[in-house]
């Protein structure tokens, strides 16, 4: 009995499944637009970042200011665009930090097994038990609101989960017979890792990267909201939201638009992540 299906590769298969998922594709589109806008901000922003119009003050959305202005007469759209540069940069960079450490740590720990694994995972367990939110607040207050520290702090929290997930996957794959077959063939460890282990954990890594970015963006905006993250004159979504909250009774649009932008981004990333999870699910590949 030959129930073979003809499809070129697992990745193409996954892409086909993903492209059928309308929400995930919508998320991907929104993200693409969002990132392009952030990259092009200096050229497309309607006003200069520092432009103030104190006489104008806060105005609701209008033809000249699509999203209105704040109490200093600054254009809200411009602020959100510049804020997106910071928020997205933090999101992507801190995730990259977390990803690098997490994947390396997880792969080595999972593949080495035995005592190395025990020590490495014990470390992660101990770090996990630390109250990080509290630590980050402490760190930010004491050492000033410093972008570098912010990256480090967020990266330090997020890599733990990544390491755990990657290790779990590697452990599972290590027990697979095709890895044992590679060992029996006498292939060098590095080749087994690179050719046999990593390609098979890649799916999971991609999924969790997509889901880590919104977490990081949330964490940054949480800190900015408390007044501990990004500080003026720089802007970020969290900062804009916290200003918006202060004046929400008089100028609700100052809360509404930054919050909507943040939520829309988080939506897109989460839907994309969920879509990827379904598309790359190895169990779905055999149906």
């Amino acid at each position: 009995m030959d129930n073979a299906r003809s499809s070129p590769s697992l990745w193409k298969d996954a892409w086909r499944r993903l492209s059928r998922n309308r929400l995930a594709m919508l998320g991907l589109c929104v993200l693409t637009v969002m990132v392009s806008l952030a990259l092009l901000t200096p050229w497309i922003a309607p006003y200069s970042y520092s432009a103030q119009d104190l006489d104008l003050g806060a105005t609701p959305p209008s033809g000249a200011h699509w999203l209105g202005t704040d109490a200093f007469g600054r254009d809200l759209l411009t602020l959100i665009l510049y804020g997106s540069r910071v928020s997205l940069a933090v999101g992507f960079l801190a995730t990259a930090v977390a990803l690098t450490i997490g994947v390396l740590w997880g792969t080595v720990s999972g593949y080495a097994g035995g005592r190395t694994d025990a020590v490495m995972m014990r470390t992660v367990d101990i770090l996990y038990a630390l109250p990080f939110t509290i630590f980050i607040i402490l760190l930010m207050v004491i050492f000033g609101r410093n972008m570098f520290l912010l990256f480090m702090a967020i990266g330090a929290v997020e890599w733990l989960t990544m390491a755990r997930i990657v290790r779990g996957q590697v452990l599972g794959i290590r027990r697979q017979e095709y890895i044992e077959a590679a060992i029996v063939m006498g292939l060098p460890r590095s080749r087994i890792m690179y050719r046999h282990v990593l390609p098979n954990v890649l799916g999971v890594i991609i999924i969790y990267t997509t889901l880590t970015i919104p977490n990081v963006i949330l964490l940054e905006s949480f800190l900015s909201f408390l007044g501990l993250g990004i500080q003026p004159p720089q802007s970020s979504w969290g900062l804009l939201i916290s200003y918006g909250v202060e004046t929400m009774e008089e100028y609700p649009w100052l809360l509404f638009f930054p919050a909507a932008t943040l939520s829309l981004t988080l939506f897109s990333l989460n839907f994309l992540g969920d879509g990827l999870r379904d598309a790359l699910d190895p169990r779905a590949a055999t149906d």
Partner: peptide, 24 residues
């Protein structure tokens, strides 16, 4: 030394669904 000798003795596994790398 072990790795160099390994080709001399090979194994066929039970589960043909798990013994081949799905990405190769």
């Amino acid at each position: 030394q072990l790795n160099d000798t390994r080709p001399e003795f090979q194994m066929i596994f039970q589960d043909p669904y798990a013994s081949l790398n799905p990405r190769m």
